[in-house]
Computed example of a mutant assay.
Amino acid sequence: MTATNPTITLNNGVQMPALGLGIFQSSLAETVDAVTTALRTGYRLIDTAAAYGNEKEVGEAVRASGLERAEVFVTTKLWLDDYGYDSALRAFDTSLAKLGLDYLDLYLLHWPIPAAFEQTLASYRAAEKLLADGLVRAIGVCNHNPDHLQRLIDQADVVPAVNQVELHPYFTQQAVRDADASHGVATQSWAPLGGVNVYWNGGRNAAKNPLTHPVITEIAARHGKTPAQVILRWHLEHGLAPIPKSVRAHRIAENFDVFDFRLTGEEIAAIDAINSGMRGGPDPDRH
């Protein structure tokens, strides 16, 4: 098996790397080094957001990488404070300027606002304009449950290319994945290693850490891989697009070293069975 990062063909034909680097909670100083290390390692997708406050540093690292712009898939996200048609367009301009890029590969709405759906729809219509104007190559959403997604698709002109959601062995989101697939939407996994259970809400779910689950540690030992590598392989085997976050060079490299082995059907099923149905991060219906 060759050690190359596969791509996922989005519903508009754009090719998105299946594995990327997430930089949520990365400090400004750490971000440049993390992105630089990731790009040198072979990552070609970098995921940031306006709310992360590190778009400028992401852009700096991408521009200094020596890679052609077309080789790096850059994602950022619209934050709730900027929802609305005109404000979303202004926020996009701000993000693009901070990144120092001419276009974005993927622009996402960070959360739905179920109680004020018209704001979500207006923001998405702004994203549709950006797509039509060639300023973004693909648009999508984050944290959309099936009902949120259906409601948006019913009124939008462009079906989202991506739905980025919390997804890990303790929270497998099968209903969301099924809904996404039925609409041709790619599912991207944030907190793919389950770290949200450790750092969110005072670590209330810290005991549910997939990295220490015996099923996963046993499979890792069997393959001579780490638990994190097994979990990322599990995502890839399911056709998901994980974006693990790390600022440590050895972890960034470890997380990318997942293309030289496969899990068996029995191993995948065993990891599937870990699912508790319990969300670790914020609830999209209450955000």
Rank of each mutant, 00 (worst) to 15 (best):
D33R: 15
A207H: 15
V215L: 08
A116M: 10
T172Q: 14
V72R: 01
E60N: 14
N11Y: 00
L149R: 00
P114S: 10
E166Y: 06
E57N: 09
E30P: 01
W79S: 00
G59H: 06
L236C: 11
P112V: 05
K98Q: 15
N143V: 01
P210L: 13
D154G: 05
V165D: 00
F171D: 05
E218F: 06
W234M: 11
T212C: 07
L101E: 04
H168D: 14
D272P: 06
D178K: 14
A161R: 03
V14I: 13
D180V: 03
D93T: 13
E254K: 10
G239N: 12
L135C: 11
S189I: 00
V230F: 05
G84C: 06
A221R: 14
S26W: 03
L152W: 02
V162Y: 03
G224D: 12
R177A: 10
S65R: 07
H223A: 11
R63I: 06
I216K: 01
G281S: 14
A97F: 06
S182T: 04
G280C: 09
L80T: 14
N201W: 14
L109M: 08
A88I: 04
D82R: 11
V165E: 04
T264I: 13
L106K: 10
V14R: 05
L108K: 05
T76G: 10
G100A: 12
N163S: 02
T94R: 15
A249K: 14
A249E: 15
G265Y: 09
R125D: 05
M278K: 15
A186F: 03
A126K: 03
A38P: 02
K77P: 00
T37V: 12
A29M: 13
V196S: 07
A220Y: 04
G140T: 03
S87I: 09
E55K: 11
R177L: 07
D133M: 07
L104S: 02
P160A: 10
V176K: 01
N5Y: 08
E237C: 08
A132G: 13
A115V: 03
Y199S: 13
A156P: 02
E237T: 12
L80Q: 13
G59I: 04
Q174R: 15
H287P: 03
T37M: 12
F261Q: 13
V176W: 00
V162C: 03
T217V: 13
